[in-house]
Each structure stands twice: as structure tokens, then as C-alpha cells.
Amino acid sequence: MNQSNANTNVVEMIDVCKRYGTFEALKKVNLSVRKGERIIICGPSGSGKSTLIRCINRIEQHDAGSIVVEGQELTGAERDIAKVRREVGMVFQSFNLFPHLTILENCTLAPRRARGLSKAEAEDRAMHYLSKVRIPDQAKKYPGQLSGGQQQRVAIARALCMEPRVMLFDEPTSALDPEMVKEVLDTMIGLAEEGMTMLCVTHEMGFAKQVADRVVFMDGGQKIEEADPQTFFGAPENDRTRAFLQQVLH
């Protein structure tokens, strides 16, 4: 194996397949992500975008092919998976904050339990990232008391508190009212500018153009096209990509 490749590829997916019963949700998907890269994944509903990124932290288990994250191959071993998950942050469409915990507790739970930080260390770190997403003043509130946009920013901060090597986003703005989309995208742009490795499923094409190093187009469980944003939006090769772009851009 090429040594430099092994060191720089944060995520390496080779011929990854995933079935639900007899339905093939992923058909031999290949994808590699280098450190600091920002990948945007788009495609029609049901094309396997969520499945793809959920396989990266093994929220879903792939059936064939291999996935290597930070040098660790994802197999059955429980301990290895926990190790990978600590290095991979994830932000969900529906926020999935823990409603019975305060914002601060949401952010300190995993660092304390899974990283072994003391309460004080975890709280310092939480306040740092909450400031970064610009809601430090809400720390004592509960998720149900915040707006959708604020909740999603907390969810980002919560993931960042684990100081992950790569962040996965699954349509982070799709459940938000239009006026709240910008505050979340701005937070993500900030992260991208700091060099965070990111994989993001989104239909926000303006955001894609602004931050993406590469755009991946999925359809029917396959990676149909992968290109830099200029090529992808300017001169897509595939008919299905063109048809999709026409729908989302107009």
C-alpha cells in the first residue's frame, strides 16, 4: 500500500455495497476523502446519500467492500467502531439533541464519558465551541427552548466537542425554516474555512459552489459523477446529473 496515501486519506471507501433485504441501497461505491477536503454529496431522494455517509461511522453496516476511516478498517469489532466514532462527528437533519439534557450537558456528555475529560475540562471545551457557533448564552437552556437553527448549531457544537477528524452532515438544513438556513450554513462555512474535513449531503447548491472541493452525484445507489464544482455545475458529463441540476437550480 502507498504510504503517503494511507496517511492522508481520512476516509477510503472501496466497492462498498449495502442491501436492505433484497434492495440494493449502495452498489459498489468508491470514494476517498483526503484530509481537509470538503465533499458535497447530492442526488435525488432515495439515491443512497444518507446510507453512504451513515456507513462511514457504521450507523449502518455495509455488506461488502471496505471502508477505512483514519487508518482503521470498519469491521465487526465493537471497540474499533467506538474508536472510529470518536473521530467522526455527525450532524443529522432532525438535530437529534438529547431533549432531557441542557445545551451544556448535551455538549459535555460524550467528551466526559467517551474521551474521559473532567467535568470542568468538558465544560470549558463546550463553552468554546458554543461560542464558536455563537450561542454561548443558551448553555443552561434545554433543546426544546431553542429555535431550529439554534438547535442545529448546538448539534454542530456537540459534535465538535469530540474534536473529530472529519464531520459528516446529512441534510443539516432541510428541516429548518428558510430564515434559519443561513445561520447554519454560515457556521458550516466557518468550519470549512478552518480546514475541517467535511462530507455533506445537501441540496444547497449555493453552499456547494462556495465550499466544495468536489461534488459527488448519486443516483440509484451508485456514484454517477464526481467532479470539482466548476466542472460539476458548469459542464456535467452525465445526463442524469444534468437533469438533476436542472431541477434543483431552477
Binding site: N57, I59, A82, K83, R85, R86, V88, G89, M90, F92, S94, N96, L97, F98, L109, A110, R113, A114, R115, R158, A159, M162
Partner: peptide, 13 residues
């Protein structure tokens, strides 16, 4: 379902 997923994604046992 998202509650357990979020906890797992954070690396909680």
C-alpha cells in the same frame, strides 16, 4: 430512533 443514533455517533458505549 435518532436518539440512539446520535449517541452512537458521538462514540458513547
Amino acid at each position: 430512533q435518532g436518539q440512539e443514533e446520535a449517541a452512537a455517533a458521538l462514540g458513547l458505549s
